[in-house]
Simulated assay, not measured.
Amino acid sequence: MSEPVLAEIYDLHSHTTASDGRLTPEQLVHRAVEMRIHTLAITDHDTTAGIGAAQTEIDRAGLPLRLIAGVEISTLWENHEIHIVGLGIDKDHPAMVAFLAEQAERRLQRARMIAERLEKARIPGAWEGALRFAQGGMITRGHFARFLVEAGRATEPAKVFKHYLARGKIGYVPPQWCTIEQAIDVIHHSGGQAVVAHPGRYDLSAKWLKRLLSHFALAGGEAMEVAQCQQAPNERTQLASWAKQFGLLASQGSDFHQPTPWIELGRKLWLPAGVTPVWQRWTSPEETKERAV
C-alpha cells in the first residue's frame, strides 16, 4: 500500500533579517522545511536582499523547498499604511531595483525622524540601537521597538507601538510611502502578482475595507491574503467572501518574523472552499495532474 500524500503547504508571507525578521535567510529556509512547508515566499519589507542567500542555501543543502521571490511594499492609501505583497517577482528587474532604492531612502528618512523625536523625549541612543538590531538590514519601526524594550521602556514590542510609535505618540512619524497604484505597477513590471497583505489588520471598518479592496482590484491588483495563523472568528470566511466579490485570488501567509507560541511557518494556513488560490496559475496543467495522481 502506498503512503498517503501530504497536502502541500504554501506560506507566502515571511520575513528575514534583511528587514525585521529574527532568522537569517539560511535559518528561515531550514525552519520552513522542518515545518513541512512546500512553497515559501520571502517577502521582506521594501527589500529583496534575503532572497539570493535563501536560494543559495536551498541549493547547497538540497532542501525540498520551492522559494518564491517576493517583497512587501509599504504604501499609503487614504492616510492609512497599506502593505502590498509582490509574489513571483524578478528581484533584479531594473524597475524593481530603482523602486526599492527609493523606498529604502524614504524608510531611512523616517527612521531618522523617529530617532530625533525619541531623543527630544529624553530617550537617547534610539538611532544607534535601532541600527544595531537591524544588523545591516532594512531598518523598521520594529527595530526601534526592540531597542525600547531593551531600554526598559516597555515589556514587549506591542506595548512600545501602543505607547511610543502609534499615531499621536511621541515617536510617531507619518509615513511618506508610494501609492497602491505605484506598488502594483512595479510588481507587474517585474513579472509578479500584487497581493493585499493581512487586510484584517488595518483597523478599517467593513465599509472602508471593501473600499480598499475595490480600489486595489480596479488598479489591477490580483489577490488578497485570506488565511493567516491568527485571525478573529469568522474573519477567514468573510475575507474569502470579499475575495470572490471583488474578483481577487486568495493567498495565505503566516507573516512570520520569529518563532512564537501563536505564529509559526505554515500554521493554520488553509483556504475556504470557493476561492481560487493565487498559486493555481503558477503550475502547468501537467504538473497539477501529476501531483493529483
Rank of each mutant, 00 (worst) to 15 (best):
G70V: 00
E102K: 00
E81F: 01
L28H: 08
A95I: 02
H80C: 09
H45C: 12
A95T: 05
T48A: 07
H80S: 10
M35S: 14
K91H: 06
H80N: 14
A41D: 13
V85H: 07
T43V: 05
I84L: 14
E102T: 01
P94I: 01
D90A: 12
V29M: 14
P94S: 02
G88L: 04
A41C: 10
E81G: 10
D59N: 10
G50M: 07
I73Q: 12
A54I: 06
I37L: 13
R110A: 00
T48H: 04
I37D: 15
R106K: 13
R66L: 11
D90H: 09
T75E: 14
D46F: 00
F99P: 09
E105A: 00
I51G: 11
A101K: 10
A32V: 04
S74N: 14
V71I: 11
E57S: 15
G62R: 03
G62Q: 02
A49V: 03
L108I: 04
W77F: 08
D90W: 01
A32P: 13
H83F: 06
L87I: 02
I73N: 09
V85D: 14
L63H: 10
A32H: 07
I89M: 08
A101Y: 00
Q109R: 04
G52I: 03
I89P: 15
E78N: 15
T48L: 07
Q109D: 08
A111N: 02
D46E: 08
I73D: 15
T48I: 08
G86K: 03
T47G: 11
R110N: 01
I73S: 12
T56F: 05
